[in-house]
């Protein structure tokens, strides 16, 4: 029980130390896409060409904002790992604390996973908000070029949010439809968070051979993501996602087992 209590305390302490960065990141990746979507709608009205919402969302650059936020979060994760070796060198204090070195490993990983989940969850909020903005602005408009008004045509698709969600590759990755997609997304999520941490631990403990599995899993992640970002164009020769998911899962388990062993042995000191 004491170990769990220690872990819980460490987890919250770690999370609190992330909050200033996280707050800025989440605020940025909420406000920026909303502004981008809004201006993309304005551009649409000017050119009189109304795209579907999923296309508008992609064209507005909102997906790119998510990607940048994701990369920033990963970088920050690495920074928090390395920061303990700089300045106060707090890693040495942590390693001598009576909380157990595994708690150290798990708390850091958990905080990163929670932050990533927050960022992803926020995307759904952005997608929904963006849709509401578009829906609101589509009523009572006149397109400048063609002169069509919303009285001639109802510019908004019935049940459009549902359609925009199931027809968007971006949403289909983040919020998968069906078990095989859910498993694939979960495995991607796990291998990215554990792989990043494992890579840093290998570098710190000078076990450079560890970069080999990290590299292979990175290649796999890219392959799976490329497939899933273009699923519609693979409709004629679809590939099952179970083999890649299981492989990613195996990598994630290896990263956790070996990573926590590195920490337990104090090899990173």
């Amino acid at each position: 029980m004491d170990i769990l209590k220690g872990f819980y305390r460490l987890l919250n302490r770690e999370f609190v130390s992330w909050t200033p960065f996280l707050a800025c990141l989440l605020a940025g990746s909420l406000i920026l896409p909303i502004m981008l979507i809004n201006s993309a709608i304005t551009d649409e009205f000017r050119s009189s060409y109304l795209q579907r919402y999923e296309d508008l969302y992609a064209a507005s650059g909102s997906e790119l904002v998510f990607l940048i936020a994701f990369v920033l979060l990963c970088l920050y994760f690495l920074v928090t790992i390395y920061a303990r070796y700089w300045g106060s060198k707090s890693i040495y204090t942590y390693l001598t604390l009576p909380v157990g070195r595994l708690s150290l490993y798990w708390s850091k990983l958990a905080v990163f996973a929670i932050s990533l989940l927050l960022l992803i969850g926020e995307q759904f909020l952005v997608y929904r908000l963006g849709y509401s903005i578009m829906a609101g602005r589509l009523s009572g408009i006149r397109l400048l070029n063609s002169g069509l008004t919303s009285e001639d045509i109802n510019f908004l698709m019935n049940n459009g949010f549902y359609l925009a969600h199931v027809r968007s590759e971006f949403c289909r990755i983040l919020l998968p439809l069906g078990f095989s997609r859910l498993l694939s997304s979960l495995c991607l999520f796990m291998v990215i968070s554990t792989g990043l941490y494992y890579g840093a631990l290998c570098e710190r403990s000078r076990k450079f051979y560890g970069f080999v599995p990290v590299g292979i899993s990175a290649y796999l992640v890219v392959r799976v993501l490329l497939y899933r970002m273009n699923e519609a164009s693979h409709a004629l020769n679809p590939t099952g996602l179970y083999p890649s998911s299981l492989l990613l899962l195996a990598f994630a388990v290896f990263f956790i087992v070996h990573g926590s062993r590195i920490i337990r042995r104090g090899a990173i000191a």
Binding site: L11, N12, E14, F15, V16, T19, A110, V111, I114, S115, L117, L118, I120, G121, E122, F124, L125, Y127, R128, N158, N159, F161, Y162, H165, V166, L175
Partner: peptide, 27 residues
């Protein structure tokens, strides 16, 4: 803090999933 954040994240994701699934028959 961490637990609360996790709760918020889970609510956001599950909420979106329920929202999409519920609007399936909206056509």
């Amino acid at each position: 803090a961490a637990l609360l954040a996790l709760a918020v994240a889970v609510i956001l994701v599950l909420g979106a999933a329920i929202d999409v699934d519920a609007s399936k028959n909206g056509g």
